[in-house]
Amino acid sequence: MFSYLVNRVIQSIGVLLVVALLSFVIFNYVGDPINNMVGQEATLEDREELRERLGLNDSVIVQFLRFVGNAAEGEFGISYQFQRKVSDLILERMPATLELVFVSAIFALAAGIGLGVYTGLRRDSWLSRFVLTTSLIGVSLPTFVIGILLIYIFSVTLEWLPSFGRGDTVRLGSWDSGLLTGSGWLAIILPAITLGLFQLTIILRLVRAEMLEVLRTDYIKFARARGLSRRAVNFGHALKNTMVPVITIAGLQIGTLIAFSIITETVFQWPGMGLLFIQGVEFADVPIMGAYLLLAAIAFVAINLIVDLLYAAVDPRLRVSAQRGTGTA
């Protein structure tokens, strides 16, 4: 178990270093940072001085180490587009994204497990068939099309829910929360559904398949024979044993949620990190892109690592011979 743990941590650090190197290359060699910072009228001496001051004349290794050091302190330079510190911009936008990801993860988990259990228990009811067929079509719908459809139905036609923004937010220290106001909750409904729908279908199918598997086992038959209530059999015994793979997949899907929040935030003009990143890509704002790449990589590596370790903790077989491939998102 211990060697497995060490192995995985070393692997994760390796991945992060590679991504940091990529991010460093993007920062330093994509476009000339000096050109992006000084005006047209700057003299050659001015440029040379700035070059020296920014440490661009040091050796590449020194520059890379400094970059990693700065990144560790959350320092990613100045955005070309907003002329502000990237770390401030990201900190400002982070609560919006995290709240969105959190709410849609809860939605996907609750609805996915609920529907999964139902379709697993009542295999042949028309409602189960309807849910499964819909979920098949749902997988083929790109995220932004789902968003547009929801906006058309619930904002334009029915005029029930807002189509953009976060509604009113409440400031808690440095955290801008939209979850404490009514308009904030109304505003998060459509984006959260859009973002969580794909994950919902994955969890639904997984739970259903696992339930069908578990319900066939002997200990479920025995539990029924003992005269336990349906509820105890279905939820206490069956559902509990489907949870190991569900935890793994759900964990990995949270990473995907962060990535796909870029799309959802664009559709709903949700003021989060994804929208910031897209604006960065659109305007070739290199510091924002580099910082986002590194942050996303840290998030993914951390999630993969936690899921792998959780898995090892839950599944005793893995503790013995622990040579698995890297978990994939």
Partner: peptide, 22 residues
């Protein structure tokens, strides 16, 4: 392995963004 740590849409976005920046 490193690339599979990130979702493919994010990789495509990144490559696209870097090409645009260049």
């Amino acid at each position: 392995d490193v690339q599979l740590t990130l979702p493919s849409i994010l990789v495509a976005l990144m490559v696209d963004g870097v090409a645009r920046a260049i």
